[in-house]
């Protein structure tokens, strides 16, 4: 493991003093991944924005279907120091509701729509979050959930080409 950025290490330690960090991980020397309880996320994001993480690059989501949980991942970026931070939290998969972060990062509006559309997570406080963004004419469950079957949807929705079979292989042929 190459040397971890000292500033980043210091920062994660400071965060750990005020909030309960469940787990700390360093995927790359200038990137840290911190796990929090869902209730802490907004306070942590507001604190980190004050520490120079002005940009929220992405809000992503992971479907942990065996644990029955969705994991929300907020990717933050600090332009002055060149540091990246993942703020992660897990919410219940059966009742996927979370509170919006548009009050802290206004740009999160579209990422929340994206996550709502592809995973079905509701964001309280973002009135646009249930508007469609990418999908058109969609009538099934959110497509990025692990229990969604794209082949069945595709077969149901789009006409396939019909092929005429004009040559049948005998047993053992064409293997």
């Amino acid at each position: 493991m190459s040397k971890i950025n000292m500033q980043l290490k210091e920062l994660t330690e400071n965060v750990g003093k005020s909030y309960s960090v469940l787990q700390v991980d360093y995927p790359t020397p200038n990137q840290a991944a911190l796990d929090f309880q869902p209730g802490d996320v907004h306070a942590v994001l507001a604190y980190l924005k004050g520490q120079g993480f002005r940009q929220m690059s992405l809000l992503s989501c992971v479907d942990w279907i065996e644990d029955g949980q969705f994991q929300l991942v907020y990717l933050l970026f600090n332009w002055e120091a060149g540091l990246r931070l993942q703020v992660r939290t897990r919410i219940d998969r059966a009742n996927p509701v979370f509170t919006t972060v548009t009050g802290i990062y206004p740009g999160a509006k579209y990422y929340e729509r994206d996550v709502h559309e592809f995973f079905g997570v509701e964001f309280n406080g973002n009135p646009d979050s249930s508007k469609p963004l990418f999908l058109e004419n969609w009538d099934d469950m959110p497509p990025m959930r692990k229990d969604f079957d794209p082949q069945a949807y595709s077969d149901r929705k789009y006409k396939a080409r019909e092929y005429k079979t004009d040559f049948n292989t005998k047993a053992g042929e064409g293997q």
């Binding site: 999908l135 497509p143 969604f148 794209p150 595709s154 789009y158 006409k159 080409r161």
Partner: peptide
């Protein structure tokens, strides 16, 4: 465009353009 190619099982990609 003929039969979907590597996207034959994608949920948002059509299969056969000549339809």
């Amino acid at each position: 465009t003929i039969n979907g190619g590597i996207y034959h099982d994608a949920a948002t990609v059509i299969k056969s353009l000549d339809q």
